[in-house]
């Protein structure tokens, strides 16, 4: 589904990603861990198409297409979803209106009929249950005045409504309380299917007890320094990132 090869990306002349290699197949869950500033969010943003980053080398193939050639909205319509580390507020635009517009843009792109108000409401009510979201959040402006945890949960709600093929969750677990963490993880698990894939960026092994990854990758200084199974996360927790830095083992999955 996704193949990243030797990806180099920089911002303001600083090279942040320095040759990332990663392969994600349909049905898989990948966890990306790594120290602060190692480039995890940068990788997520480059995949989503944020144009403040410039890609100097490497390729990204998504479902056989050159992902880097696509506009961000094309990527989104093609099934790429990013749950933001810092979700953005859009004053005056209600969550439900925002989602309806987004969903219909995606559906239109895929040759599906746009949902009318009634069908849409039915759909979002159902998806709200998936992440245990209160109805009032539908009528509030997107993320405005939401608590940190509510914003994160709202990202997963968006994901539940838009049903992406490739979801990238950038530290969705940070800032969630214990119950919310379980709810969000449950939601992600319920949305897990044979034909979609998830990349989970996290600092905490804890999340991976709920969302069981097929692979764990450690990103250090803009490179995947180590990859392994879910036990790698436990090992990291025990030994810290220095351990990875000291015994590098640049692996391509």
């Amino acid at each position: 589904m996704l193949e990243i090869r030797d990806l180099h990306a920089s911002i303001n002349g600083n090279e942040i990603l320095r040759g990332v290699n990663l392969r994600v197949n349909a049905g898989e869950v990948h966890a990306i861990m790594g120290p602060n500033g190692s480039g995890k969010s940068t990788l997520a943003a480059v995949l989503a198409g944020r144009d403040v980053y410039s890609v100097s080398r490497g390729t990204v193939t998504y479902e056989g297409k050159d992902l880097l050639e696509m506009d961000p909205e094309e990527r989104a319509r093609g099934g790429v979803f990013l749950a933001f580390q810092y979700p953005v507020e859009i004053p005056g635009v209600t969550n439900s209106y925002f989602l309806k517009t987004a969903l219909n843009a995606i559906r239109k792109h895929r040759g599906l009929e746009e949902l009318d108000a009634v069908d849409f409401l039915k759909l979002i009510r159902e998806r709200m249950r998936l992440v245990d979201m209160e109805e009032s959040f539908l009528h509030r402006p997107v993320n405005e005045g939401f608590s940190g945890g509510e914003k994160k949960r709202n990202e997963i709600f968006h994901m539940a409504v838009l049903e992406p093929k490739l979801a990238i969750l950038d530290e969705t677990d940070s800032g969630l309380d214990i119950d919310a963490l379980r709810i969000v993880a449950d939601g992600v698990n319920k949305l897990r299917r044979k034909d979609n894939a998830t990349i989970v960026v996290t600092h905490y092994q804890r999340l991976l007890n709920y969302i069981i990854p097929d692979f764990v990758h450690v990103l250090v200084d803009g490179q995947v320094m180590r990859s392994g199974g879910k036990e790698l996360a436990l090992e990291l927790e025990e030994k810290g990132y220095d351990w990875v830095k000291e015994t590098p083992e640049n692996v391509t999955t």
């Binding site: 953005v88 004053p91 969903l103 838009l162």
Partner: peptide
């Protein structure tokens, strides 16, 4: 960017933000 990431065209994103304002 947030709007585009959810599938909205750039123009629709601007319109939506202005409208909300």
């Amino acid at each position: 960017f947030y709007c585009k990431q959810r599938g909205l065209a750039a123009e629709d994103a601007v319109n939506m933000i202005v409208n909300g304002f």
